[in-house]
Design a protein around this nucleic acid. Sequence first.
DNA 1: TCTGGGGTCCTAGGACCC
DNA 2: TCTGGGGTCCTAGGACCC
Length: 361
Amino acid sequence: MTRWLLHVDLDQFQAAVEFRRHPELRGQPVIVGGNGNPEEPRKVVSCASYPARAHGVRAGMPLRAALRVCPDGVFLPQDLATYAEASEEIMTLLRTFPGRVEVLGFDEAFLAIDTGAVDTDEPEQLAGEIRSAIEELGLRCAVGIGDNKTRAKLATGFAKAVGKSGDAAAEQDAGTGIFRLTADNWTELMAHRPTTALWGVGARIAKRMSALGIATVADLAAADRELLAKEFGPNTGPYLWVLGHGAGDTEIAEPREPVGHSRSETFAADLTERSEFDAAVIRLATQVAEETFAGGRTAGRIGVTVRTSTFFTRTKQRKLAHPTADVDEVVQTALQVLHGFELDRPIRLLGVRVEFGPPSE
DNA sequence: TCTGGGGTCCTAGGACCC
DNA sequence: TCTGGGGTCCTAGGACCC
């Protein structure tokens, strides 16, 4: 038996969900973010359709910047409830296929399947069936096939390669759609790439690695594990070395129990009064607590995040003496944690996080 | 172009205890 | 007397991802 990991990744997911209910927008440079008003400050692009990407619009870009590079863009408000519903629809569909499903986000999942021989195209056949089934939902996806999660996830990037180039054909053909990455072609396809090509290596780690003379995936694979452990810690260091070899987990982690829940808000204009800080934290804490308890969880720890007008961001948290399901206790604790900050600067963002305690008896 | 929101996991250091 | 070593709990901070 051979274990295959399939990574299913929806194309331009939020925009695609909008296209299902607004078919007349298909092919248009649709930009989802904020409340749909591109002039709104401090709001960013959540998803851009391929034509919008061709103009240079990217997720995370301020809406006002997106408007500048794509003045003909169709700006839509982010409707998370609808995307969550569509996501549930997709995950339910994926669970009808053989294998186990691990949800990675709204628009991504791993599927683990055990098949017969190694050299057959069984996983490609299954991937094709998944793509067809998703197409029947009016959506599109790419499927990465790998001998572990790391490779399956990266394979999806190759499957989407055409879509990422941003050319005009991208809307019609978002890549070949299916790609297989295994130990057999890992070195050929990945060795020369920068370490940031790896899933789990971002700009910070890449920079620290480059200071050690590690620039590419091949460098990382050849690096000294002791050195990596010394620089990145006893767990992360060896893990990075393993990543460089393309090795990774083959087990499906489902169901995943969430460990916490948070709400935060970047204010359209900085808050300057303590009464405003308190009011915002009371509101956020109440919401987080109600959502936590509605989900049948208790609160074990309360965290508050403050971001000042200079973008200086700090978090403080406090463990409760006993887990609670009392909204007021969460709110009062959040206020106490807030008051542990200096609060002598205008505030741009406030956030409240609950870490779940053990289930209530 | 002044930089969203919601998550997860890891590391380091201090307190405290034996 | 200036001096141990391990284990655990707790908070702060960093990094990454979608």
